[in-house]
Design a protein around this nucleic acid. Structure first.
Lengths: 388, 388
DNA sequence: GTTACTTTTGAAGGTCTCCATAATTAGTAA
DNA sequence: TTACTAATTATGGAGACCTTCAAAAGTAAC
């Protein structure tokens, strides 16, 4: 039925208590034994025992005692969040982004490398290599220090980390990103669709914090979705969840065309930049532009409504490039969704902006480590890079 | 991040081991200490200790030793699955069904009571009362022996157990089923939408066993859905998940009309029985009937495709009254889904038939008890009806 | 009916991890 | 210097687990 937690001998109990101490300490400043004892529910002597063991293992480190208090100064211990590192890599159309974060999820180094939208497979991969190398160098790390990395890319990705289908970049189809990036870093490399990572980021550090059910809409030159169900990223049986835009009757494929049909921009404008002009004109009150935006919003809302009706999320998050124009896009979108849905979720705009995908990639790496290092079933692992 | 399992003192370890023993023993025949020791991973003496304690508590019972083996006959213990009982109640249009099951989920008594489709609120509730009373009497139980009960009904149900909206039976809207049934039985009363319960049943004892992601279609006079995501029933933030049929563009509301438009049935046929005639005619090759079925299948597939694209389930299960006519319905449905979806899931017919909803209700009751009696976090509770 | 074999049972001794309590230590404040 | 405060260290004890070995209670063979 549910996965069972096996019992065991006394060492199991120590495992659990060690895990409890680490759990309390992670992502917080150094604590004294008394504080740890209070937060874990363990007795003071037991806490000390566990902490000393963890310190010996390398998970904990003693720091300078705080000065200026009453009584004997207490030893303080911190979680060694710099024992291991994770990377979050966002391979976008115009930009490669690499974030290096510690085990607390604190982003310590950021690298942004522009890449031509026209860049082919080899050129783009080379840019990734360079960005990763630059980020590692800036952090003073080598690939061996990376315990896990996640790559975000557009397109459908299989479980092995290969791009199965990329509509936006046909040349990208078939590239084995897990393998490629695996040559640069030591740990496990995960590959995931960019919309999903952005959704994950929003539930971690964005507007959807603490929400359990979220529909994320990536609205931009491409339209994508990320679904958070029960607080977890939903991928589906074959990693194909969220492809609602493929339904002919809902027509996300058509959605862009409304924006493209706009004739108010200067002649010769790159079609990719057209959208910005439309939104700007709508903002200034141009009635034709407003109508175009409304038609786009309607098409977008059609798919969004299907997701909302299917999943009944607490929140719909509008992200992607067009979310910068939320001031003209959000209202019509909301109205169209309200027309169709039984229960209306909150509809909000992403706050993470461009960073969302890379941040979600960091989060996914951390979740992977969480399962392999800090899992209740297996107990606390040693503070070294887990095997692939 | 994830819910943390608190450590603790040695009694915690005993809790876990007791839970492990119960977990191994549940739903299985009586086992010897040696067998239990092997399956739990505990030593023989410890196993004995735990078992004796559980026997004293009332969770385990010694049974006659098996005869005719080598060596000294071993004591055998069984899980007292009859320590508590659950009910599964299906309030359907034509039938009230009540199942009484033990803690192993073994259905021990079944009561079916016909009720007029035209029956009003009071009459229908009275029929429920009678059916529950009859089932309890047949099992030799009183309401106090029931640890949990679940009621399945059509319509939207809120978290408190009230029917918020019933389209099929307007009079049903507002009825507080949890409260009503709570007067009859002692334990917690859950109320859930019938399609969802049927979906749950399919993953428990039906064709979707062990599948993690399932879209269940209830196709009948009404059309409904149940979604299983990550092995759990998905309700959504406000219990409104799965209402994809409400999307005007997909039109499950229209789906029935195709069947109703059929003119080949004897004059004066009850519109509710019309569908059967259509399917029968289609089975015999009547081309007009085949066309009608195809149009119905297309409408159904539209909503189903939206769910499949959104969730990427492993399996789509066709249930409900029309699933009896799967031989003429399944193929066109499958073709229409294949037309629209990126990845095609398996599409199969329910095998549980009429029992599905009541069985799902039993399962939901058991899951509720699982959380409150056998939970890893709180440890094993005493073998008495948990507080409401 | 005895003997050999098999398997379970029961008892003893040891280890580990936790807890409660009390004595000691290392600071600050008067 | 003395009082006060809070952390550390030490001690004793209890609970739960393990391994090991002798005794018990059956069946099978002679």
């Amino acid at each position: 039925m549910t996965e069972q937690l096996a019992g065991g001998d006394l060492s199991r109990l120590r495992q659990l208590n060690a895990l409890a101490v680490v759990h309390v300490l992670r992502g917080r400043p150094a604590l004294t034994l008394t504080e740890l004892s209070r937060d874990t529910g363990l007795s003071r002597p037991s806490t000390e025992d566990v902490v000393l063991q963890l310190q010996h293992q390398g998970w904990l480190e003693e720091v300078q005692p705080a000065s200026g208090g009453m009584g004997r100064p207490a030893r303080r211990y911190r979680f060694r969040s710099d024992a291991g590192w994770v990377l979050g890599i966002d391979i976008g159309g115009h930009t490669i982004r690499v974030l290096a974060a510690d085990l607390d999820g604190e982003v310590r180094h950021t690298v942004r490398t522009p890449v031509a939208i026209t860049a082919g497979r080899a050129e783009r991969l080379a840019a990734v290599d360079a960005a990763v190398a630059e980020c590692l160098a800036a952090a003073g790390l080598t690939g061996a220090d990376i315990w896990a990395a996640t790559v975000g890319t557009s397109g459908l990705v299989d479980a092995a980390g290969r791009v199965v289908l990329s509509v936006a970049f046909p040349e990208w189809t078939g590239v084995h990103l897990a393998q490629h990036v695996g040559r640069l870093v030591g740990g496990t490399v995960l590959v995931e669709n960019d919309s999903r990572l952005a959704a994950l980021a929003e539930t971690w550090r964005g507007v959807a914090r603490y929400a359990q059910h979220v529909v994320y809409l990536l609205a931009g030159l491409r339209t994508g979705t990320g679904l958070i169900i029960d607080g977890r990223l939903h991928r589906g049986f074959a990693q194909a969840a969220g492809e609602i835009g493929a339904l002919p009757e809902l027509g996300w494929i058509r959605a862009q065309e409304h924006l493209r049909s706009w004739t108010g921009a200067p002649a010769g404008t790159d079609p990719d930049d057209l959208a910005g002009y439309v939104f700007a004109s709508a903002r200034e009150g141009d009635r034709k532009a407003v109508a175009v935006v409304r038609r786009y919003a309607k098409e977008l809302a059609l798919g969004a409504s299907a997701l909302v009706l299917a999943l009944d999320p607490q929140l719909v998050v509008l992200g992607g490039g067009f979310s910068r124009s939320a001031d003209v896009l959000l209202d019509p979108l909301r109205r169209e969704i309200e027309k169709r849905c039984v229960r209306i979720p909150e509809i909000v705009t992403s706050t993470l902006g461009d960073e969302a995908v890379a941040l979600g990639a960091v989060k996914l790496s951390l979740e992977h480590l969480q399962e392999h290092l800090f899992d209740v079933r297996t107990g606390l692992a040693a503070p070294v890079r887990p095997a692939r």
